[in-house]
Simulated assay, not measured.
Amino acid sequence: MSKMGLSGQESSDQTKVKKTDILKDFQLFFFSMSRLASFPWTFLEKDLQSNKSPEFISDILKQTCLHSLCRKFPPSVRYRRLFLSELIRREAAGCDPLDELYDALAEVVGTEDTTECYKSYLLPCGEAVSLLENVALISEGTTGLVTWEAALYLAEWALDHQQAFTGRTVLELGSGVGLTGITICRSCSPSRFVFSDCHPSVLQKLRANVQLNGLTEQMSPTVSVEELDWTTATEEQFKQIGADTVIAADVVYDPDIVGSLVKLLSQILRSSSSEVLPEVLICSTIRNPETYSSFKQQLGNAGISHHVITGPVGHVFPYNRLSSIEMIQLYR
């Protein structure tokens, strides 16, 4: 084959690889209900301009709205409607109409919106963590019915540091809808995992999500969901759990509960029945520097030292990486 022929073949292969990566991005963003502006629309527009064919749009549809995961755990009706409208807008400018695109839109136009939806977060192994979440960020008097950035960051850190959880008993404080804990259970092989929260609606959704992802008390790891009120928890409770690792994500946001959290962490570090203290990891999105600074100061006042865990994490889930996220490990 001539050099020109080889060059053309390489270019074609690179385009195929690029298309495969772009399709994965569309799928990743769609199932986690990422902002539509974050999708790789530019690549689609260029493909339409050069090929004048709806083939790539058809491929996108198969990986999103027509995918079996969407049938089982669909993103919100409004989100699917907006996503399909964006596809149609670009298709209209670049190629012939694609019937299945309009069929998919007709299906969601006739569907009623609900207050709940599914978000699915794709793991590197190809499996998905699918969660029932609320559409609104704040509902039923709590922020615990949606997944927040620090939970995604901590899950990514866990995927990079699986040995921190393998064969261990893990307690998660403020588990919310369960993203971090379910990711750890599915990927890091803990021997036991205890999810916890205190809001009744959050606990109900958390239990549903744990079951939804095939985790039960009868399987390995042994999993339980427990009500844990930070103001009334006792050292005895923590001794019974016997956690080797304690994690929490996005629990430092309300100045009114920082004191209760610090008291709770002191109890956890005191309650260890072995000479080895549990590894305690707290991951926070710093929305209010004053509140976060107060948390660290109160830790110090309680005799708890900390160090900031630095270093990059693998980019697995789509979220706003401009957010200020910090992870610390606690010591006594």
Rank of each mutant, 00 (worst) to 15 (best):
2 S>R: 08
9 Q>C: 12
10 E>R: 09
11 S>G: 11
14 Q>M: 11
18 K>S: 14
22 I>H: 05
24 K>L: 10
26 F>W: 09
26 F>D: 00
26 F>K: 04
30 F>K: 01
32 S>T: 12
43 F>H: 13
58 S>A: 12
59 D>I: 02
60 I>N: 01
62 K>C: 12
62 K>T: 13
63 Q>T: 14
63 Q>K: 07
69 L>K: 06
71 R>V: 08
72 K>F: 06
75 P>G: 13
85 S>V: 13
85 S>R: 13
97 P>C: 14
103 D>Q: 14
104 A>E: 14
104 A>S: 12
107 E>Q: 11
118 Y>C: 13
118 Y>S: 14
119 K>W: 05
125 C>Y: 12
129 V>N: 08
134 N>W: 05
134 N>Q: 09
137 L>G: 04
139 S>R: 08
140 E>V: 04
145 L>V: 11
146 V>W: 03
148 W>G: 09
148 W>Q: 06
151 A>P: 04
151 A>N: 03
152 L>G: 04
156 E>D: 12
157 W>N: 00
158 A>E: 05
159 L>E: 07
160 D>I: 11
161 H>G: 08
168 R>E: 10
170 V>R: 07
173 L>E: 01
175 S>R: 01
179 L>Y: 01
179 L>V: 12
182 I>F: 02
182 I>L: 02
184 I>D: 01
186 R>W: 02
189 S>F: 08
189 S>I: 03
191 S>M: 06
192 R>D: 08
192 R>P: 05
196 S>I: 06
198 C>A: 15
199 H>S: 09
209 N>L: 05
211 Q>C: 12
212 L>H: 07
216 T>C: 01
225 V>E: 03
227 E>T: 15
236 E>R: 04
239 K>P: 02
239 K>V: 05
240 Q>V: 09
242 G>K: 02
246 V>S: 02
254 D>E: 14
254 D>C: 13
257 I>M: 14
261 L>G: 00
264 L>M: 10
266 S>D: 05
270 R>N: 09
272 S>T: 07
274 S>N: 04
275 E>S: 09
278 P>N: 01
279 E>I: 04
279 E>C: 10
279 E>P: 00
281 L>H: 02
283 C>T: 15
289 P>A: 04
290 E>Q: 14
292 Y>R: 03
294 S>Y: 07
300 G>D: 04
302 A>T: 01
303 G>A: 02
306 H>S: 13
314 G>I: 10
317 F>V: 07
317 F>D: 10
327 M>P: 12
331 Y>W: 08
